[in-house]
Amino acid sequence: MIVAACVKLVDLRPGVDRLTGAVTPSTTLGCSAADRAAVELALQLADSWSAESVVVCCGPDRADPVLREFAAAGVDRLVRIDATGAPDSADVAGLLATTLAGLGADVVVCGDHSLDRGSGSVPAFVAGALGAAQALGLVEVGTEGPGTLRATRRLDGGRRERLVVDAPSVVSVEGSVAELRRASLAATLRAGDVPVEVVAAPGLVVPPTVTTRPWVPPTRVQPPPQGTAALERVVELTGAMVERTPPRTVELPPDRAAALIVEQLRAWGYLEAVPSEPATDG
């Protein structure tokens, strides 16, 4: 039996130019607490089922030192799908699914979000591609015999859903599920020589990086408050006691409601006033 953990290694310290939005990558890669919890859970499951543990990631070769930290913690095999840039989640999931199928993974554990955008969609894509059972966003995981998980899933409104998930399965866990064990010093030293199996990613299309300028609100000069006491100045700054037009609710057909909103925005100065119609001679 094989238990696999999928992790996403992201740049921990990208330099972001606050004026241009340009991103400069750093040399420091890492993964989310949820991903680390996934690795720990995979280790626990592998220990309990006498299974082989594998960590799989999709990334560049500078991810290898981070993967070796997982080897120091006790993971049996490290597999990296060779890819650079920021490929689409569905593409990553496809590559992961192909690799996991090749490995013969019975249970796949993922973190429920990564450190960058963290939508948590990859585990669902992987489960779909593998045709495996999926249980996402787990807050508690136990076992009921080899290949079978007893899990608790977080639902809206504070409710919980209890699930029994049989292999083949793909689950994603929150960071609170487990804390990655601290590797021994000897294992940490040995991990430097652990090989990372590299899988090619032919045909992977990495979309070009789009650089956008961060939105910066326009500045305006605010005169300093004139009050002599601190309370007066705070009140003046917050505008708490200033008389203002109360909000009003109107019920109108959509076209008239839109016209009224536009008219009010013009009155407040958010929209330019409509130039007056030139007078025409009769």
Binding site: R182, A183, S184, L185, A186, T188
Partner: peptide, 9 residues
């Protein structure tokens, strides 16, 4: 001694 398990070096 280090703070790792079996951490003597």
């Amino acid at each position: 001694r280090t703070d790792r398990p079996d951490g003597d070096l």
